[in-house]
Amino acid sequence: MQNGEYIFYADESGDHSLVSVDAAYPLFVLTICGFRISEYTQGTVPNFQKFKFRYFGHDMTVLHEHEIRKQAGEFACLTDIVLRDRFQKDLTEIVGAARFDIFSCIIDKRVFRSDFFPDNPYQVALSICLQMIFKYLQKARKLGPSYHFVFEKRGEKEDRDLELEFRRIVDGQNPLRVPFDGFKLRFADKKSNSTGMQLADLTARPLGVAYLRPEQPNRAAEVIQSKLCKIKVAVNAQRGIHIPGRKKAKGPG
């Protein structure tokens, strides 16, 4: 099967466990970033490499949202507030300039848990995001070729469970009741220096924070919001399932 002209990278924010819910961040956020390969290779990747050379003198640094926010590891230099402000401003601008679409789902575990939903948050979010992407490609008349979906490795059991769920959804066990032919799953090592994986990581948590605290200034989320895919899929917002970019349903928080 011929390869398509898009590539998709996924990451998550928060955990999908319903056993214990973090009161400070009671969410599971799945984000899949879709890039047109020509734009990704000719614009996005070179621009991020230039950004890394500017700040680190090399392009081996992996941009990780948690470490940037905590000023940890290679980002300890960001304890300098002047440097941090300039770094954050430049990073926000380069993310804003990158051309890609975001397919995302937020699970509010405070509501989701109380409804005793039969599936776990990861399964629900994955199904919704893959439906959005299928309908996006269908609308663009780009169905037919193979499309690769790159997820970060999390562990042998977790990766096996994800692969089984991914296969189940693309084989036709989804609300659309159609197979998502050509959707292929790939795993990347946590240390993989993939620009697409780093962008997925950089977009997930800001969307979650914007959901939890919509009145709080959130420069990253403002840039990300413009890239959210507006493809509609059926969701039950009263059960704690939220698609960023839509009006937030009434509920906790």
Rank of each mutant, 00 (worst) to 15 (best):
K232P: 00
E74L: 08
F48H: 06
L130Q: 08
K50A: 15
V95D: 00
T203S: 04
L212R: 04
V178K: 06
D85Q: 14
G253T: 08
C105I: 05
G251P: 01
E215M: 12
L78A: 03
R160A: 15
A200G: 06
I7E: 11
L212D: 00
F112T: 05
P145K: 10
T195F: 04
S192L: 15
E215W: 10
A204M: 04
A24V: 06
I7G: 03
K232L: 06
I68G: 00
F75Y: 02
V82F: 07
S192C: 14
L63D: 01
P121M: 09
V235W: 03
Q173A: 02
G182E: 05
V95C: 01
S38D: 13
H64K: 07
Q238T: 12
L228V: 04
L185E: 03
F183A: 09
M1V: 11
R69P: 03
L176C: 03
M60I: 12
Y25T: 04
G240V: 00
I81D: 10
G34A: 02
T79W: 11
Q198D: 02
Q88N: 01
F56A: 06
R186Q: 11
F134D: 11
F112W: 11
K191E: 11
G182A: 04
M132G: 07
F87P: 08
F117A: 15
I32V: 05
C77E: 09
S226M: 12
R219Q: 13
K248T: 09
L91G: 05
L228H: 04
N120H: 11
R36P: 01
F149N: 07
S226P: 00
H66K: 15
V209A: 02
S104T: 11
Q138N: 12
Y25L: 04
G14W: 04
H66N: 14
D80K: 02
I106E: 08
Q88K: 06
N193D: 00
R113E: 15
R113Y: 14
A237K: 10
E163H: 13
D201K: 09
V223L: 09
S17I: 10
R141F: 12
L164E: 13
I224E: 07
I107F: 07
L63K: 05
S104V: 01
T203D: 05
F53C: 05
V233I: 03
V29Y: 05
I107K: 05
K250L: 09
I133D: 10
Y122S: 08
L143E: 11
A98C: 04
T61P: 03
S127A: 12
F103T: 06
A220P: 02
S20Y: 12
G144M: 00
E74D: 13
